[in-house]
Amino acid sequence: MSSQNSRSIKSLLLRHEVLLVLVLVLEIFYFLNNARNFGTPDNLSNIVRHSAEIGLLALAMMPVILTGGIDLSVGSLLGLCAVLFGVMTHDWHWATLPAAFVTILLGGLAGAFNATLITALRLPPLIVTLGTYSLFRGLAEAITQGTKTYRSFDPGFLGLGEFRFLGLPLQGWVLGFAALFFGILVHLTVFGRSFRAIGYSPEGTRYAGIPVLRRTAMPYILAGLTAAVAALLFTARLQQARADAGTGYELAAITAVVLGGTSIFGGSGTVYGTLTGIAAIAILSNGISRVPAVLKAGIGGELASLLTGALLLLALAAPALVRLLQSARKQPTT
């Protein structure tokens, strides 16, 4: 009994998410002691505001990866949605609210386009979204002829970029709401649990009577909707809409999801793990640029990327390393 208990504690400790929380705590502890003005309320609010768009994309990416898929098009779609929003508010003189609503709708439609190709034609998600990665960005560039920037939005809308409620920036509330939504969807609904089952074994899930294709489509549509919401946040924060919005965000989102313990092959992962992954990356890149020695050398940006890459590799390799150690320890006794 007691040995069973200790084993379960040990396996709990080896759980990816728990290790990641430990990393997060270490990061925070280290930066509180060594990084300049890290723990100030203004800086904490910076961290939330700066990571909101990538965070949203990561939360939406998580169910996609859970089903064994991937969506490389979310960053480009963010750019396309930002441009479309600009077209509606500026060229067509729509009011902000209907324009925002239609933008989100179009984001969902773009997600549905991915979903249709992936499910109806059974094409590999990596390739489909590699194509739409190029297509969506290309459309954004074509619409703006590459050069046009939409500026001077409605002041009320731009205010959202700086808006705070109960001390937390709006971005934090949106991120929290999205985390709650995806958390409930993935972990508490039968519908969402099937994502995991599909990722684990699509054939088995089909035999269990679950409409695999229809369920696989849903995460891509949600990713499209989320990318549109992120586009609105991005536009409000930067006070402009241009075709290059969200460049490279797809890889940052995937990094957060994988760091958060979701298997890139699908079938396992948690939303709170993803949330921890987002936090670990955001805090690392904010904090490392405040460490005096790094500040002095002027290498904050590069170091943040390098350390994120190293963390990602470590997180992936940790289970394999533990297994190696265990088998090495076992061998002498047998």
Binding site: L121, R122, V128, G131, S134, L135, R137, E141
Partner: peptide, 26 residues
């Protein structure tokens, strides 16, 4: 053709290639 169409056309070519494949295998 203006340069800003390049990415969209490349994306379309990739998609057409895989769609053709998908339709055929279906």
């Amino acid at each position: 053709v203006e340069a800003y169409w390049e990415k969209a056309i490349q994306g379309l070519v990739i998609l057409l290639a895989v769609i053709a494949d998908g339709l055929r295998s279906r």
